[in-house]
Design a protein around this nucleic acid. Structure first.
Lengths: 183, 183
DNA sequence: ACTGTAGGACAACGACCGTTGACCACCGTG
DNA sequence: CACGGTGGTCAACGGTCGTTGTCCTACAGT
């Protein structure tokens, strides 16, 4: 059997870690299970990542890659589509979401993620000074979709097509971002 | 010190259990912590509830108490207000939500909750046959609000008043329930 | 006063977890 | 061929958890 390089092993561990964190959450995802899935000894995980906490931090590093250019008048559908594709692309966001619910460090990372990556978009599209609130409203809808579809697996929500999701949630997101303040 | 009745003790355990499950999630909420908070020995919890699983089942029993009568043309704001008040009334819903993320039995209970209690309302207000999908859409927005506000504690969402929440999310809920199907 | 019973405490078991330290095997290089 | 470092294993420690069995104690009814 050919020896693996350290980088290959690290990558295998990260992949396995995202999978376990995504489907088991922070506490149920054990170092031992991650190691088994990566085909190595638990001690290697410690060698390469130092602790479970640091392994999670490495596994949950993510860039939302929100597109710079969107339809300024009706940004919702495009953003919704982008989010859905981002969620389904790999396990990272699911891992972060599941962990954020019971792990304070993960929750903090999630808050930072929305503040730093969704914030600027909202600041640009929203009325003067309303950026943070509008970003928060968008977050409620997008996080709720993710939770319902990928974690709770509510059957009607799982059954929605990407088109249906964009058609239903798009107007909501557009309104949260661009509508004037209500009375 | 006067002895407590079994019923009093059971109630104290349930109260403590909801608190621990709500703020720690299923796995981090230990029987030992619940017992300490209820002022008794962990063994008592087992005596009265049999197992951690059954304790959770007892602590997570809930009735959403969705009002029978709502404004049929614009049900959103009223429903949103009712949900927010229901969430803030006690720890039961927060406990269920947090546990549902990492505990399959709790997730199943959450699915049943929405199907049985939100489903009928959606079936009544939505176009023929569209009930389940509309209930699912409503769930994405309401669950997302709860997660963002009570679990992740996103600052802009935490800062919203009940009035602001109803004003922003009300139209969304109304549209999900009563709008005709999009193209 | 006696006693049965309901309400409760204590200590321990077995399992599992994160983490550690000592030890091994293969490899390219001198 | 020796050899050092890289990639890897193994066994164990200390801690915590759910759970169990045994024992204790206060009180109500006779």
């Amino acid at each position: 059997m050919a020896r693996r390089s350290a980088e290959d092993t690290k990558a295998a561990i990260l992949l396995a870690a995202r999978e376990r964190f995504a489907s088991d959450g922070y506490e149920r995802a054990t170092i031992r299970a991650v190691a088994t899935e990566a085909g190595i000894d638990p001690a290697m995980v410690m060698r390469y990542f130092g602790s479970k906490e640091k392994l999670f931090a490495a596994a949950a590093a993510i860039d939302l890659r929100i597109p710079e250019v969107v339809d300024e008048a009706d940004p919702g559908p495009g953003l919704v589509r982008h989010f859905v594709e981002r969620w389904e692309q790999d396990d990272t966001l699911r891992a972060l979401l599941r962990a954020a619910v019971s792990h304070e460090a993960a929750a903090e990372r999630m808050r930072a993620l929305f503040a730093e990556q969704l914030g600027p978009v909202a600041a640009r599209l929203a009325p003067e000074g309303a950026g943070p609130v509008r970003a928060g409203l968008v977050a409620t809808q997008m996080v709720g979709l993710a939770l319902s579809r990928y974690v709770l697996a509510l059957p009607p929500v799982v059954g929605l097509s990407h088109d249906a999701i964009a058609a239903w949630l798009g107007p909501t997101i557009s309104r949260y971002l661009t509508a004037p303040d209500p009375d």
